[in-house]
Every structure is written in structure tokens, then in C-alpha cells.
Amino acid sequence: MEKCTEIRWHARGGQGAVTAAKFLAEVALASGKDIQAFPEYGPERMGAPIKAFTRISSAPISIYCGVKNPDIVVVLDETLLDVVKVAKGLSDDGVILVNTDDDPTDVRKRLGIKKGKVYAINATSIAIDTLGRPIPNTPMIGALIKITGMAPLEDVTSHFAKTFGKKFNQKILEGNIEAIRRAYERVRGE
């Protein structure tokens, strides 16, 4: 059986985790992969902790349950580290990416995990600088593709322009693409 990459997103309602999970799946789809993206369904409330999932695989995907043993965990809101067991089920060689200003070593301590790789990026401050709003989802995508090598940066930015070109005005579109670039360059890990 071919390995399926499973990603679990942790965020608060309104931070754009579902949009990010979907966007990443679309990027992978464009490169010929099978994909899935879905939230953990429930009442949708702004600010409530939510989970979303992305699966990417070269072989057809036929699982429809939530991701229990993620290869990659993405945390869009660092306050969740104290509320939700974000590293639960993370595989031993797994990757965890957190939106924080802390160093990856400090994040590892906060998470209390020994194995796997920990990455940190201050996506919120990048979003404020580039978009004027604290919406961390697009920079997190930039960081994620850097650490996983999932897709080339240029493919992602051009796909972003194609997907959101009609929805956003030029300024916001460019701000988002700049956010992806900055996070791609600045993400740190250990």
C-alpha cells in the first residue's frame, strides 16, 4: 500500500483552517494526487477550537474517518497548546508546525514530546504585516510547503493567484502571496 500523508489542523473557528486544508489539497490535486480535506463537523462557532484534516496520496484514498495518527500537525493558534492535545497520535517521525514567536526548542518543551520534528513560525505577525489582519492560514501554508517539500513555492503562489484571483482585490491577493513567501523563508525547526 502506498503511503498516504495525513495532516491534522488545529485552529480556532474563523482562523481559516478549513480553507487552508482545502487549498493544500487542491495544490496536491493539481500535481495529480488523490486528496481529501474536511473539518471535524460540529456546531461552527467563532473562536471555538476546531480540527480539520487533509489527506494526500499517490494512490486512491478510501478512508473517511478523521486523522488519528497524523504525519503532520499544524497549529494555527498557540493558545491551543494549553487546551488541546495537539500532538496526540503524532507519528514518531512526524512533523509539528506551530504559529508562535517562540523558538522550536521552547515549543517542544511546551508540547512535552521527544520525537519528531518541531517547527515554528510567527504567522500572525506576518499576516498583520502583509494583510493588516491576524489571519494566519496563508502564511502557515508557506511554512508547511517549505518543511515538507510538498510542492514548489512558485506552484503554490500561482495556484493561489488562480484560486483567489477573482475573490480578492489585487492588494489582498499580493499580500497573501507575500505572506506565503515570507513564511516559506522564515520558518525555523529543530
Binding site: A21, K22, D34, I35, Q36, F38, Y64
Partner: peptide, 12 residues
């Protein structure tokens, strides 16, 4: 089709 699992999940 299954509600939410398929109706709201993004697939190929």
C-alpha cells in the same frame, strides 16, 4: 450519500 462525511468533505 452520507451527510457531512461526503456532502461537506472535499474529495477528488
Amino acid at each position: 450519500m452520507d451527510g457531512f462525511i461526503i456532502s461537506h468533505g472535499i474529495q477528488k
